[in-house]
């Protein structure tokens, strides 16, 4: 119920289309300017660079699409509709997350035309494409869950946007902190980094269980916290 309504809200709203359009345009420009570039490259290198910047655009799209999920309902007063229904907090959060993930997955899959273009003048391994897209979907799953959490605890969409951006930036910056920190913090920062350690494998066409577990864990913890927060509101 919730997922269906929220998905319709994305499709009936200019915001959803605007985010999708901007992300696709930016992806296209970066693919042409950065991945293809102006010098001859191996197809694998093109794909690696494509997945590198797609990580960034996926994260940004995720923040922009999830910030409205709960915060908008709180702002417009419609949260009481689902609060007064017998829907359980996990159903509400799960439904909202599912709607955002459907849009994000659609957006990510639409970019498939870019790797397809590489086939024209090059040779790409299907495995590389599958691994890269699996990585992008996992990044989307993790960051959409972070965005859902930020939207659940925020009073307005704007605050939700800032909160989810801040949380995601911190997780991305762990990669840089890992470079300058000493052990054991170095290992902690490295493991907690949303990029580098966990995404580089997908970029290069490898699928590692550890990376999958990492992104799924981030998504699970964020959604669990969101659910707990929704349930706790009735007691505050």
């Amino acid at each position: 119920m919730v997922a269906r309504r929220d998905l319709a809200a994305y499709l009936n709203n200019v915001w959803g289309y605007a985010v999708i359009a901007v992300v696709l345009v930016v992806d296209g420009i970066l693919f042409n300017a950065v991945a293809l570039g102006d010098r001859p490259k191996y197809s694998a290198e093109v794909m690696e660079q494509f997945f590198y910047f797609s990580f960034g655009t996926t994260v940004i799209a995720s923040m922009l699409l999830t910030m409205r999920l709960v915060a908008e309902e709180r702002q417009t007063g419609t949260l009481v509709l689902i609060d007064s229904s017998p829907l359980r907090p996990w159903q509400i959060i799960g439904g909202k997350y599912l709607s955002a993930m459907t849009v994000l997955a659609g957006l990510i899959l639409v970019t498939l035309y870019m790797p397809a273009l590489v086939f024209v003048n090059g040779k790409v391994s299907y495995g590389h494409i599958v691994a890269g897209y699996t990585g992008l979907l996992l990044v989307a799953a993790a960051t959409a869950a972070i965005g859902t959490f930020a939207s659940t605890v925020s009073r307005s969409q704007l605050v939700a946007g800032f909160a989810s951006t801040a949380l995601t930036v911190v997780l991305v910056v762990f990669w840089l902190l890992a470079k300058v920190a000493d052990p054991p913090l170095k290992d902690v920062f490295s493991y907690m980094s949303l990029y580098d350690r966990h995404f580089r494998g997908f970029m290069q066409g490898q699928i590692n269980t550890e990376d999958i577990v990492f992104y799924v864990s981030i998504a699970f913890v964020s959604l669990m916290l969101s659910t707990r927060f929704m349930a706790a509101r009735r007691w505050r």
Partner: peptide, 15 residues
């Protein structure tokens, strides 16, 4: 909650 219908002061509507 299945036994209750609730209308707050400002109607909660998906406009």
């Amino acid at each position: 909650r299945t036994k209750i219908g609730f209308l707050p002061e400002e109607p909660p509507l998906y406009r």
